[in-house]
Nucleic acid binder design. Structure first.
Lengths: 180, 180
DNA sequence: TAAGTGTGTGAGTGCACACTTACAAACAAA
DNA sequence: TTTGTTTGTAAGTGTGCACTCACACACTTA
């Protein structure tokens, strides 16, 4: 026995998050995920129930990592006020998405929410993150809303590559955003 | 001669925006666009340079419509202050995306920005809208940034279907957003 | 009416990819 | 050693889709 199936699943999910993040659900062949994970395509199909099952599982892993990072960030808050905790969470998130995979995966997942299973996975992910932010920071509805609005703005900045655009409108949109 | 090529192109672009909005670039076959436009697939390929050319042209049409609506909204502003003009623009945008096609198309376009031609089309679209908002409203960088951040939040709300979710976290994210 | 031009399509072609099946090797338990 | 279980793959199969090409019809102009 070279490895347990459970260990393989973890490896495959890491590869899947990266691969789907770059080229999306429909344009990413399962062979690409398998190759990145170093195993055969056939075995990926045995470990997960089809390409859709793989994507949904990858979504779970993606939001799992985000939630964990934000929770850790909250622990490092210097004070206990909602503003301070939210700021610490934002900083932790900014660090996490430096490699872009987790951010781009969210964009890709949002784009295929016409598939009900994926829509549900996205809701579950945001439910987990949003409830934690609200409860842990003790923030108001408006503060939580603002937190996510500027998070979503990051998606636009990164996908459109606005950090590289020197024009005034792009500078306005990227101003003060912690390094993507 | 049943129709001019230029008139056909307009018809096809309307069909393309709707079709791509729902199922995205890779999952939308050109046959679906052709069927929606009421012409053959072969003729779509004559009118546009490949599927990519069609998508890029559709992106142009999408942002064109958004820009036009926002410009019209600005004209209806009750006062001249940046806040009032931004509010009028936001209202016009909210009306425009009631049918969801234009909003969903933006999400789909952002998801395929790994294709350089599409990334450039997205940048061109936001360049046009953002510069107009900034110039016409006379808004500060921070105000423009906020305007787009909450616009992007709408993308999440609609794709994840959060209006239908009665839980507190979802209510917090959707609070005060003009009817999507 | 003949030739030319623009509009339109039916019928392919070739390839990429989701998913399956038959089979083999490693390991465990009897 | 034999039997069973789990890990793993090579080699298909069928289908959907981007794109092409030969051809036809509508309309204009000389």
């Amino acid at each position: 026995m070279r490895s347990t199936a459970e260990a393989r699943r973890v490896t495959v999910l890491n590869a899947a998050v990266s691969a789907f993040a770059r080229t999306g659900f429909h344009a990413t062949p399962v062979t690409a995920v398998a190759a990145a994970a170093g195993i055969s395509e056939a075995y990926v199909f045995r470990l997960f129930s089809g390409k859709l099952g793989l994507f949904v599982a990858a979504a779970g892993a993606c939001f799992e990592r985000i939630a964990t990072a934000i929770e850790a960030g909250a622990e490092r808050a210097t004070g206990g006020s909602p503003e301070e905790v939210l700021d610490a969470m934002g900083g932790a998130y900014a660090e996490l998405i430096a490699d872009r995979d987790l951010l781009l995966f969210q964009v890709q997942a949002q784009a295929v929410t016409d598939i009900p299973e994926i829509a549900e996975a996205v809701r579950a992910g945001y439910r987990r993150v949003a409830t934690f932010v609200q409860d842990r920071a003790g923030a108001s509805d408006a503060q939580v809303q603002q937190f996510f609005a500027y998070g979503q703005l990051c998606h636009l900045i990164v996908t459109a590559g606005l950090e590289q655009v020197p024009e005034p409108w792009a500078r306005a949109l990227t101003a003060g955003i912690r390094h993507p």
